[in-house]
């Protein structure tokens, strides 16, 4: 369960302040798929960053698994991210000097896991790239890179997976594969999935779609439970 209570974000700008997010409340139940949509500049990525603890809100509380992450220090946040939150970026952001397998292993190594090798291979297998483990990011296609990124995000089996326009850089076919992979992860592992997307198809698959406009929630659309 993720709860945002009165969360807002402003940044200083010139003489005054610029409001990126107006105070908003939001609950995301466990195991749900939540899509955040909206035009450019509506505050989607900021919202996602706040949930991940990558940024601090100007006001309000963010509870992840019952912990108010706004009270945590940088290193505590990093530990939280390492074990509880997986992140997938639009630009993949794989470490260029590491192979695919090594990229997947990094979060486990950071957390000090012992069986990183085996679990890394398993994860690559899960995203269908068991044969490409020794390749460097520059040797992989965009879709493959994103799948490695997803595998990396799942490395420590986090209950929460955040994805920032995961298909934004991919063609529709590849994008579809990535979406399928993410949904499959949601289903098989029960991972809560929060994604920022422009993709209406993708949004349609979410349990809950939050429409943002000018830093405020403009719409909340719940998909009827699947039959």
């Amino acid at each position: 369960m993720i709860e945002l209570r009165g969360v807002s974000k402003t940044v200083p700008s010139g003489d005054g302040t610029l409001t990126i997010l107006h105070p908003l409340d939001l609950s995301i139940p466990d195991r749900h798929v939540v899509a955040i949509t909206g035009p450019s500049g509506s505050g989607k990525s900021t919202l996602l960053g706040l949930i991940a603890g990558l940024d601090a809100p100007t006001s309000g509380q963010i509870l992840v698994g019952g912990t108010d992450i706004t009270t945590l220090g940088e290193d505590a946040l990093a530990r939280l991210r390492g074990t509880h939150i997986g992140f997938v970026f639009q630009f993949f952001h794989l470490l260029p000097s590491l192979t695919a397998l090594e990229n997947v292993r990094v979060p486990m190594e950071i957390a000090g896991a012992r069986d990183a090798e085996r679990r890394g291979r398993a994860l690559l297998d899960e995203v269908g790239l068991s044969e490409r483990g020794h390749h460097y990011p520059s040797q992989l296609s965009g879709g493959e890179q994103q799948r490695v990124a997803i595998a990396r995000a799942l490395a420590n089996d986090p209950p929460l997976l955040l994805a920032d326009e995961p298909t934004g850089n991919l063609d529709s076919t590849t994008g579809r594969q990535v979406i399928d992979l993410l949904l499959q992860v949601n289903r098989s592992r029960g991972t809560t999935l929060v994604l920022v997307t422009h993709d209406a198809d993708l949004a349609a698959l979410a349990d809950l779609t939050i429409g943002l406009r000018d830093g405020a929630i403009a719409s909340r659309t719940a998909r009827p439970p699947a039959s």
Partner: peptide, 16 residues
């Protein structure tokens, strides 16, 4: 530096 930022995102502490 980008790698450092990524690592932080993946849960690495500043010290690490």
């Amino acid at each position: 530096i980008p790698s450092v930022a990524i690592l932080k995102c993946l849960g690495a502490s500043t010290r690490q």
